[in-house]
Amino acid sequence: MDEKEPVYDIVFMVDDDPIVNCVHQKIVRNIGIANEIRSFTDPRKALAELRSELCHAKKSMLVLLDINMPEMSGFEFLEFMELEDFNLNVDVIVVTSSICENDRLLAELHPRFVRDFVTKPLKAEDLKKIIAYP
């Protein structure tokens, strides 16, 4: 099982902090679960690109989503996905610095997309477990 097939075609990093994106990028690349990685500090741009990807191809995608962002919160991001009825081949992992239980409950309101809720820092081991990558 050395040559592992990537699980996702594209992984979106959505966090207003570029350093966090940088760290996450490293983790994802190290465990090799994606063909392509895209980083966004503005969630609106990430949403637009995700939308266009869904239009023309049936690609499987993962979004690592922060909550507290100035332009648009992670919850708003999820609500847009819900409203626009995004394809179900988009998985979302909420990655936040929050340790509030309430935030976890809010994330659970979107079970169609949210695979899990992780408190920063994200660790490679956690990620592997969530996407059931051996």
């Binding site: 902090d17 996450h24 610095s97 820092p121």
Partner: peptide
């Protein structure tokens, strides 16, 4: 936020 970042 900065704390979590540092840890990462």
């Amino acid at each position: 936020a900065p704390l979590a970042r540092m840890m990462g």
